[in-house]
Design a protein around this nucleic acid. Structure first.
Length: 304
DNA sequence: ATCGGGATTGCCT
DNA sequence: GGCAATCCCGATG
């Protein structure tokens, strides 16, 4: 089952995407070690290159930072719609030292306000904790769970509605992700596979170093965390998306059954596979997303 | 001031 | 596959 080639169509993706014009270019000048977007070759040697060189040789010094960043328009959609639209998009975390961590979103859950009893904002309930759910679309909602973990959401349109990010496919910065994740694990535990780095809502917070204080930050404008489209991947088709009941909320009866968890069919980084839901929708598309990670997985096993 | 539960994870059997 | 870990937040008195 090994070496299938990445199959995603590299065709025109460029269509209907409003480009949020970048904010400050200041990143440009203070870059210490910027990584090439496509490859992940050696970090650039010390700060020897000049800003003008960056501008000229855009191949090596692309400012992908802001180029592919998703703007306010993207987040301005209803919760369920946004939860699906997230699939395939790339979450980026720019760390203190300039290191950028990237992961492709492969699993989400929609939590509506109002009637949705499983939501923190059920019945319009508004507290200090969930205030971010009521803020403008694109606002990050980070909350602690079970005393030890964090979960990251993004507010959408709709009063009190937000999307939970449940898993990512690691794309860049896996060594640091592994380091961050290992901090919590038993000493001497086996090394995590790449696909295990971000396959869960709290795991991805650890791997991308998303702290509680990121609560209420704005994905549209924040310099340390944002969302971008992947220029090499076409948007997920409906047949690639599995809709299943959300996990971990079975105490909420009726509402626990709503199929508001969404994930890329066959993707190895999905935290919980629901075969029943996959049967119910359709089969025969299974190959697509599978190949993507088979590729990445092998890729990353070899260390940098 | 106290109490109970939780949108999970990792280790152990 | 079961279950403990761990503590913040919100509800209640």
């Amino acid at each position: 089952m090994a070496g299938r080639k990445r199959k995603m169509l590299a065709m025109a993706v460029a269509a209907a995407a409003p480009e949020q014009q970048a904010h400050k270019q200041k990143n440009q000048t203070e870059v210490k070690r910027k990584l090439s977007p496509a490859k992940l070759k050696e970090p650039v040697q010390g700060g020897k290159h000049t800003p003008s060189a960056e501008t000229e040789r855009s191949h090596y010094f692309t400012k992908t930072d802001q180029q592919h960043r998703l703007g306010q328009d993207f987040f301005n959609q209803p919760c369920i719609s946004l939860a699906k639209a997230f699939l395939g998009k790339v979450l980026v975390r720019r760390c203190e030292d300039g290191t950028e961590l990237r992961g492709r979103i492969v699993e989400t859950e929609a939590y509506l306000g109002g009637d949705d009893r499983a939501s923190h904002s059920a019945g319009g309930k508004r507290t200090e904790r969930n205030a971010a759910m009521f803020m403008k679309p694109g606002t990050i909602y980070v909350y602690p769970i079970y005393g030890i973990y964090l979960c990251m959401n993004v507010s959408s349109e709709g009063e009190g509605a937000a999307v939970l990010l449940r898993s990512l496919e690691p794309l860049q910065g896996q060594p640091l992700m592994r380091q961050l994740r290992a901090a919590r694990r038993k000493e001497g535990a086996r090394q995590l596979k790449d696909k295990e780095l971000c396959n869960g809502p709290s795991k991805l917070c650890q791997a991308l170093n998303i702290p509680r204080c990121f609560d209420r930050r704005d994905l549209v404008s924040d310099p340390e965390v944002w969302l971008e489209r992947d220029p090499n991947t076409s948007p997920a088709q409906p047949c690639d998306i599995v809709s299943a009941p959300r996990v971990g909320i079975e105490s909420h009866g009726e509402w626990a059954k709503k199929p508001w968890r969404f994930y890329l069919r066959g993707h190895p980084c999905v935290s919980v596979v629901n075969k029943e839901a996959e049967r119910q929708s359709q089969s025969g598309y299974v190959m697509n997303a599978l190949d993507v990670q088979a590729d990445t997985g092998q890729h990353n096993v070899k260390k940098t």
